[in-house]
Amino acid sequence: MAQEKVLEINQLKTYFHTKRGIGKVVDGIDLTLHKGETLGIVGESGCGKSMTSLSVLQLVPDPGKIVEGSVRLNNEELVGKSEKQMRNIRGNQISMIFQEPMTSLNPVISVGEQIAETIREHQGLNRKQAFQKSIEMLKLVGIPSPEKRAKQEPFQLSGGMRQRVMIAMALACNPEVLIADEPTTALDVTIQSQILKLMKNLQKKLKMGIIFITHDLGVVAETCDRVAVMYAGEIVEYSTTEELFRHPKHPYTKGLLQSLPKLYEDQEELQAMEGSIPSPFKEHQGCKFTDRCPIAEDSCHQIHPDLKMSSDHSYQVRCLFYQEEKELTKGMSSV
């Protein structure tokens, strides 16, 4: 892949130090985002996907802290930068949109002003110019009569429109990286498909890299070029979307795909994964998935597997059995 790297995350660890102990919420993540590509991070609640993205912007809430690792934007290290330096990056080079468009906009400030203030902060335009630009941004994200809408407050807009506003706000300073944290989860499906299309179009136009965080494998299949599957703070599988859906390798990925009800197929029973995600406070010696893994053996309880790269560098899997494809598929039907 001779693509230009925009964002590189290496061995990122974000821990929460609490009275209950140390919560290893993000536990050694490696990711690379290229220019113009969409990288999906998928996993169930509590797997650390959102904290990974907040760590990139150093917005991890207390008592969470980045304890190790590096985050590089165009080869420039972000970990260790001052709050002031980070502020210049947030909303400017790296933007973020969140899950709940209802609560993510300030209820008492007009949407135009909420976009304009970002522009003023980073581009030094005056009030009038910035407001004008915010109207242009609203037009860009497909909001009808943007001049009128810019002066309205969030409660006067529908959920879909608010998410469009969030996107307009995030893209106002033409960022190189957009982090979208479950951007369509709170929306109805027809609105979701509108928003996904919009994001795709804007990505083509603005050439940004997108990190797309979601729990919805359908959305992943539709939007992402490459995917990282997270489990208990770690990446367990990392490959192209094509490879992931056609040949899932990690037992967890397989389990996830199998437990989904199919839209165009009858199933008598779903292949449910037993158990639930382990607490981030739990100490693991071996693989974190052993408790729920259908193919786990004694060695899995002892050895913590590394994220190993395939020989052709097309995917990575964190499983002791990954090279032995036959071993991996034992006891599981193919997907």
Partner: peptide
Amino acid sequence: RQDYIRTARAKGIRGYL
């Protein structure tokens, strides 16, 4: 603690604002 405060910080708005 509200989401919109996180949004404001994620936009790079300075602390006192």
